[in-house]
Computed example of a mutant assay.
Amino acid sequence: MIDRIIEACARNRAITLILTAVAVVAGVWAMKNIPLDAIPDLSDTQVIIYSKWDRSPDIIEDQVTYPIVTALLGAPKVQAVRGFSDFGYSYVYVIFEDGTDLYWARSRTLEYLSKILPRLPQGVQTELGPDATSVGWVFQYALVDKSGQNDLAQLKTFQDWYLKYYLQSVPGVAEVATVGGFARQYQVNVDPNALLAYGVTLD
C-alpha cells in the first residue's frame, strides 16, 4: 500500500506539490485560529460553597455543613455532594454531571442555597467560590521586603487594598486569594473612670 502511494506521488509530482502546499497553508491557519489549552481542563464541573462561622468543627458540621449538603442533594444534574468542616470554616463541593455548563450549575446552586440560608444559625457567612475550575490556579507570588522597612501587617495591607484589585482587573483573572500575613488591628483602651465621670456606656 505504501509502495503504491509513493509511486503515485512520483508520477504526479505537480498534484503532490499542490496538495502539500494546501496542507501547509491549512496547518498554519489552524495554528493561528484554533484555540488550544496549554493544560486541558479535564476536571468535573463543580461549585464550591464556602461558609465562615467561629465555632468548633462538630457544631459547624451539624448546623452548617449537613443542612447545606442535604439541601443540594436533590438539585438537577448533581452527581455528588461532599462536605468538609474545619474550625471556623465549612466547605461544600457540589459536583455536576459531565457536560454541565458552569454558570448554569452556579445558578442552580444559588437557587437551592437560597432555601436553606434562612435556616442557618445567625452569624454564618456563606458565599460561592470563584467561577473557575480546579486547574485555574496558574500563578503564585510572594511579597518580600528585602529592605526590612515593612512588616507582615503592612505587606498584607498593601496586598489586600492595592495589589489585589490591580490583578483582579486583568482580563481572565477570576480571583486573587491572599494567604498568610498579619491583619492589622486597632485596639481601643477604655478608661472606666472617665466613662463613669461623663456618664457614657460602652453600648
Results as ranks from 00 to 15, higher is better:
G148R: 11
G181F: 01
V188C: 08
N189G: 10
L155C: 05
Q168A: 04
V173A: 02
T178Y: 04
L155Y: 01
S169E: 06
Q149D: 01
A183G: 13
F158L: 03
D191E: 14
Q187H: 08
G172K: 06
Q168S: 03
Y186C: 06
Q185A: 00
G148T: 12
A177P: 05
A177Q: 13
L155E: 13
Y186L: 01
G172Y: 07
Q185L: 11
L152R: 14
F158I: 05
Q159S: 13
V188F: 14
L167T: 07
L163W: 12
Q159H: 02
Q187V: 06
T178A: 12
E175V: 05
V179L: 10
Q154C: 08
T157R: 05
P171K: 13
A153V: 05
Q154G: 02
V170E: 14
A183I: 09
V173I: 15
Q185S: 02
G180A: 06
L152A: 12
D191Y: 10
W161Y: 05
K156D: 06
L167K: 03
S169T: 10
D191A: 08
L155R: 13
R184N: 11
G172E: 10
N150T: 07
L167H: 06
A183V: 15
L163Q: 04
K164T: 00
L167Q: 15
D160A: 06
V179W: 12
G172Q: 15
Y165R: 08
V170Q: 12
D151V: 07
N189R: 01
V170I: 14
V190Q: 12
